[in-house]
């Protein structure tokens, strides 16, 4: 079973990398970008096929390691 965990910075947390990317897009002439916030994506292959169990496991993985919940939010998706 395939799953994805997306980790993003909480709103209000400064994101200097996002700001630098935003500036680079502007200097490349990519118009219409209001702001950029960067984050991380984890593509995870799971054993077993129970989506409920998978979700619990992914939440555990995110809480324990993948995200620092002081500054980051995460979202888990079981892709199937």
């Amino acid at each position: 079973m395939k799953a994805r965990v997306t980790v993003t910075l909480k709103s209000g947390v400064l994101d200097p990398q996002g700001k630098a990317i935003e500036g680079a897009l502007r200097s490349l002439g990519v118009d219409g970008v209001a702001s950029v916030r960067q984050g991380k994506v984890f593509d995870i292959e799971l054993e077993g096929g129970d989506p409920k169990k998978a979700e619990a496991l992914l939440n555990q993985a995110a809480d324990k390691l993948l995200a620092n919940t002081v500054i980051e939010n995460y979202r888990v998706e079981v892709i199937g």
């Binding site: 947390v13 400064l14 200097p16 990398q17 630098a20 620092n68 002081v70 500054i71």
Partner: peptide
């Protein structure tokens, strides 16, 4: 900080 022994977090330097 990551282990929870101290609060907060150390982010990328402001000037990158």
């Amino acid at each position: 900080c990551e282990s929870g022994l101290l609060p907060g977090v150390l982010m990328r330097n402001e000037n990158l």
